[in-house]
């Protein structure tokens, strides 16, 4: 009787462990975003850029696969980089990897969130809404302060 009980208990504990572990694996990417800011844009500018520091405190890597904003019709994840003497800017193909336990800093002259077809100019002191879309973590909404630089 007592052996049966303890066996049931062990079986239950094992099951619970498996369930909990698999739950944790499913949410193995834990994304947090900080220091979001956007650069003010000239009156006639069609484009703008915003930057943010993305941290993945989970145990599984994730990808920033896109973004949306109320401030622009299209939002893309871009990278500026030097190739030889040339400065190039391209959309990031296949999303930007945020490694497990890692931090990726989006900053001027590197990765940035590109706002295309601005609804209105980005003015210093105002805030815009941007939602980052991750492959695993899903939507991460941001309030982005517009600054001069």
């Amino acid at each position: 009787m007592s052996t049966l009980r303890s066996r049931t208990l062990i079986a239950f504990l094992l099951l619970a462990t498996i369930v909990l572990t698999s739950c944790q694996q499913a949410s193995g990417s834990k994304i947090s975003a900080s220091d979001a800011w956007g650069r003010s844009s000239p009156m006639m500018a069609q484009t703008g850029a915003m930057y943010v520091v993305i941290e993945n405190q989970g145990n599984e890597s994730d990808r920033l696969i896109g973004a949306a904003s109320d401030a622009a019709k299209t939002v893309e994840v871009h990278e500026s980089y030097m190739e030889g003497d040339m400065m190039k800017m391209r959309p990031v193909e296949g999303g930007l990897e945020i490694p497990a336990g890692g931090t990726v800093e989006l900053k001027p002259g590197g990765y940035h969130i590109m706002l295309i077809d601005l609804v209105s100019p980005l003015e210093v002191g105002t805030k815009i809404k941007v939602t980052l879309k991750f492959e695993k973590a899903g939507d991460v909404p941001l309030e982005v302060e517009i600054r001069e630089q």
Partner: peptide, 13 residues
């Protein structure tokens, strides 16, 4: 001017 990253950074600097 369509460049919203490198060019504005340079001009602001």
């Amino acid at each position: 001017t369509t460049c919203p990253d490198v060019c504005p950074t340079t001009l602001a600097d």
